[in-house]
């Protein structure tokens, strides 16, 4: 191999390996979902003050809360699959927080991304179905569809309408502090979420 090609090979190897390394955050982040979560941990993301309306007709925003922490999950009440699991997990989390005496300091918030079907009474039903203790666990909807879309994009949530199942979306729990998303948890990772809450509130 001649000199120029040797140089070319070395340069290509260096650039290629760097591109793959950077493109996977050092061989750790292979999916957009993982990237989204890692980015939030590194740079907590501020949430805009969009207006939401909860099941009792009170308005609230994601950017402001009276409590130390807010845990948000995105749902739609007709969901046959993953949201059911999330609802059950939220209920577990609620009782774990109550046992630990932390329920007063944490707000659980289920936000629907299907405002066309989920009105105030449907959301109330949803809370009742999962044994939500209000006002610690609330359910709310966006008032403005554009704001909903903007929020979803902002959070990196992609909702795919699907014939038999309604919607498919990358489900997760969002931990919010001072109006900023500080960490995203897998829906199976309730225990991790609880530990993170406890650690935050302990300090």
């Amino acid at each position: 191999m001649n000199g120029s090609s040797t140089i070319a090979t070395i340069v290509i190897l260096a650039i290629g390996l760097s591109a793959l390394t950077v493109g996977t955050n050092g061989w750790s982040t292979w999916t957009a979902e993982a990237a989204r979560r890692q980015a939030v941990v590194e740079r907590p993301r501020p949430l805009p003050a969009y207006q939401l309306l909860d099941s009792r007709g009170e308005s609230l925003t994601l950017a402001q809360s009276e409590r130390d922490l807010t845990v948000v999950d995105l749902i739609y009440t007709q969901c046959p699959t993953v949201c059911l699991a999330m609802g059950a997990q939220f209920r577990q989390l609620q009782s774990e927080l109550a046992t630990a005496g932390l329920l007063e300091r944490v707000e659980l918030l289920s936000v629907t991304f299907d405002p066309a079907n989920d009105d105030q009474s449907t959301l109330s039903d949803y809370l009742r179905r999962f044994g939500a203790v209000e006002p610690h666990w609330r359910a709310a909807r966006f008032q403005d569809n554009d704001e909903l879309a903007a929020s979803l994009t902002d959070l990196g949530v992609i909702v795919i309408p699907e014939q038999s199942m309604g919607f498919v979306h990358n489900a997760a729990y969002y931990l919010i502090e001072n109006g900023r998303v500080i960490e995203i948890f897998d829906i199976e990772a309730r225990t991790d979420l609880f530990e993170a809450i406890r650690a935050r509130l302990a300090t």
């Binding site: 090609s5 090979t9 493109g23 292979w30």
Partner: peptide, 18 residues
Amino acid sequence: IPGILITIFTIAFWMIPR
């Protein structure tokens, strides 16, 4: 060799789901 490496890296990169 240099050329095929460019191709391999390029395709490998676009196989990353992210």
